[in-house]
Design a protein around this nucleic acid. Structure first.
Lengths: 219, 219
DNA sequence: TCCATTTTGTTGAAATTTCAACATACTTTT
DNA sequence: AAAAGTATGTTGAAATTTCAACAAAATGGA
């Protein structure tokens, strides 16, 4: 497990926990590591929501697919980030999303019951983890707020610009790379890919932005 | 404060906390109660995100307004429910939403620093509250997932039906009352009010549902 | 009760999005 | 290096939404 320490130290779940305690905690949590190849399914929609995932290497997409096959991308997780923690913490019976590896990825899996229900009154590490989970969930909630701020715009153009502005702010620069290809960005913004492509071209012609693949610069 | 105990016992923040401890906790948290008349602003977008709100009586809307005046309704809070807790817990600098009383309402306000930063290692009640906050935030995250499931549909009809189906499931009945008027429902679904009205009429003509004001029955 | 105000429903025109189809560019595999 | 597959851009027609304006219904005060 030691080879994952660099990643785990950055993981919100283990914030403020010292290396010397980490190894025994992982044992206590019964943490497992699994490998998933590109496009393989980490979690399937409808399965029990008992495991919390941590990306150790690679990345994955959180997706929802409705009965018509329309895909909505809830987000993407990178190394050291948690996923499915909300469903586990809320003790949901079934996952409403699927998680798909974007590239060959190592994923740490922890049964949430080891975090929520064991020695939560005595062990200072468990208390710390619950505090960390609370922080993490608060941040996720804010991320959803931001997303709704973007998708509640009524036109493709407005959604795109709202999204690019947030990305630009996040990168603290007017040029930045987004973590989506065209289809994925369309799924995230909840618009048509072709309409999105058209709008990007239009904004480029109007001199509002420059772009090359998933690199953008706002002018 | 004792007159609020019936409501507070149902509040997720105080789950599992006995009456005999509640009064002293409220003192320790420095909880204040304020009254807001209908349409009055409880929290203003942009103000510091330090207070957590609990509805004691009445109700309030969580709203976001963009630079074009388009309003998006993030949700509505009822007695015993928390609001703004995500921003407080994430220690956000500024609120990205406003909270507006829907009717004459009593609101309890608690400075989040009294929950997050005081005696969090020693006092068992603080630990319990943090656990409760984590649960609450997990449930809120799931609520947002549901909302995205609804608003990610591409047509007014699909959004409406997805929303009504969720409400029907929640009520465990095919007839139910929704907490929004037409304009509010339109803002929640992110569609035009006039188009929404038209769609409801159409569904009624097609025999898919019956409705009267904000009462619906799915057939 | 009556008046003023707010909410809801309706409609047609304008704007926008979706859909389908295809061309081009880029990647990956063999 | 060629072939196959994938991603992106473009277009026009069809479908849908938005917008604006108004009528009808419901609500809240005076």
């Amino acid at each position: 497990m030691k080879k994952y320490f660099d990643v785990l130290r950055k993981c919100p779940l283990f914030a403020g926990i010292e290396d010397k305690n980490l190894l025994s905690m992982l044992g206590c949590l019964n943490a497992k590591v699994e490998f998933f190849d590109k496009k393989y399914t980490v979690f399937t929609e409808g399965s029990p929501a008992r495991l919390i995932g941590i990306v150790l290497s690679g990345s994955a997409k959180i997706v929802q697919v409705d009965y018509y096959g329309n895909r909505s991308i809830l987000g993407r997780v990178q190394p050291s980030e948690l996923f499915a923690e909300a469903f586990a913490c809320a003790e949901a019976t079934a996952l409403p999303v699927s998680v798909i590896a974007d590239e060959p990825s190592e994923i740490m899996l922890i049964d949430c019951r080891h975090i929520l229900h064991t020695c939560s009154n005595n062990c200072v590490f468990h208390q710390k983890m619950i505090f960390n989970l609370m922080k993490d969930l608060a941040v996720k909630t804010i991320t959803f707020h931001q997303r709704i701020q973007v998708t509640s715009k009524r036109t493709t153009r407005e959604k795109l610009l709202a999204y690019l502005n947030i990305q630009s702010k996040k990168a603290k620069s007017n040029s930045f790379t987004i973590p989506f290809d065209r289809q994925e960005l369309a799924d995230y913004l909840e618009v048509e890919r072709s309409g999105l492509s058209a709008e990007i071209s239009k904004l480029r012609r109007e001199g509002v932005l420059e772009s090359n693949k998933n690199k953008f610069r706002l002018l």
